[in-house]
Design a binder for these strands. Structure first.
Lengths: 216, 216
DNA sequence: GACTCCCTACCCCTTTAGTGGTAGATCCGT
DNA sequence: ACGGATCTACCACTAAAGGGGTAGGGAGTC
């Protein structure tokens, strides 16, 4: 019984590396590749793979969104999140979206193959570090209270380094109103200043990398 | 005449992918691998490769530092910077350090082989985007005036979201002095607020990723 | 010795940011 | 119809940040 694997990563070098790692094992077969989230979802729909190796950082549609869709439409298909950095928000997001496993790109080949087989069998396999992040998250439930839509808009402008006055102009509201929103954002994020809010937003992945790079 | 290549990347998957890409070409031979900057430098010393493929984001010693050392000690060895994101600071930093080329991890195999051969011949090969970044840098000479050592220290604390008072305590100096430093930092970075300074520092790569992640 | 750069520290002053509270308008679900 | 959440907006006040300038002491350079 061969396990059919779909690889989703925006770097061709990484895809080729994974292909090599997996190709050596006769129980595994790479049935397709995808270079972004949308491709990944479409390929999964067509191929019905047993396991998807999904990079979290991809253009067009990020990996977490793709995981959600795939897990919804194809409950038989298990997804392993794949990333180069072990970051709290990414682990939690991937697991929330339905990933059964989480691994780093510096994982060795045997470990990788073991995880794919476990995933195909529906068994959860997490690295000790990833488990630790999940534990912490469970112990501290929704540390980040959900921001409202408007607050997210304000946060996005904060992350571009704008002042309250500039934000007010951009959103066509009074500066006092902006201060109210900022006040609530700081409280919800549990920080003391807009700079900390910006750093927290970036760290928690509340804003996409594109948004925070607009500066200049 | 076979071109001897050293691969330096902290992700085993990426190394394997590069090996695959390059192995298909009889003119290229992968003579070694390194998982961090220090390993890269040591391997280069021993192996004297013709070309080093150097990831910029690595633990222990980052790629740019490793490039500097290698280019200094082994002028015959050309280095191609390798990274997943095309970012202004990284391009400029790599070229300053002595990289002869710069390429992204989503580069296709033929392109990759072509660049390695050009590099071995001492020819510069840059992607159009990377060239554009360099052009902009040249047109805007030292947009970022060099910060002094003390200013860098203050900047690092700024990037951790600390207030002037907290920074003063951390550095054992008066808050007024901190304000003076911050004043100079803002002027040199050409920004209007500490939040913008933090964003700029991150974008320009003036602080390492580890430093900005300390929050919490 | 004169000069420059850096770090330190203070001055005065303006602007921006942050805290606490209240409150009307709207929408949504029960 | 009612409560709850959200967005809006204001008030008063305090704290923090930023902009201008000056200036002494140390280290290094010419």
């Amino acid at each position: 019984m061969v396990i059919r694997v779909l690889i989703a990563d925006d770097h061709s070098v990484v895809r080729e590396g994974l292909r090599m790692f997996l190709g050596r094992d006769p129980e595994l077969e790479v049935v397709g590749e995808a270079a972004d989230g949308v491709e990944a979802v479409e390929s999964a729909r067509q191929l019905h793979p047993d396991v998807v190796l999904m990079d979290l950082l991809m253009p067009v549609m990020d990996g977490i969104a793709a995981i959600s869709i795939i897990r919804n439409e194809l409950p038989e298909t298990e997804v392993i999140a794949l990333t180069s950095v072990l970051e709290s928000a990414a682990v939690v997001g991937a697991v929330r979206a339905g990933a059964i496993g989480y691994l780093l790109k510096d994982t060795q080949a045997p470990e990788l193959r073991r995880m794919i087989k476990a995933a195909a069998a529906g068994q959860v396999q997490l690295s000790p570090q990833a488990s630790a992040y999940l534990m912490r998250e469970v112990r501290t439930p929704e540390k980040t209270e959900a921001l409202t839509e408007r607050e997210m808009e304000v946060l996005r402008l904060l992350v571009q380094g704008q002042s309250n006055k500039e934000i007010a102009r951009a959103l066509q509201i009074a500066e006092d109103t902006v201060k109210t929103h900022v006040k609530h954002i700081l409280a919800k994020l549990g920080v003391q200043s807009r700079t900390q809010a910006v750093l927290g937003a970036i760290r928690l992945g509340l804003v996409s990398p594109e948004q925070r790079m607009k500066l200049q």
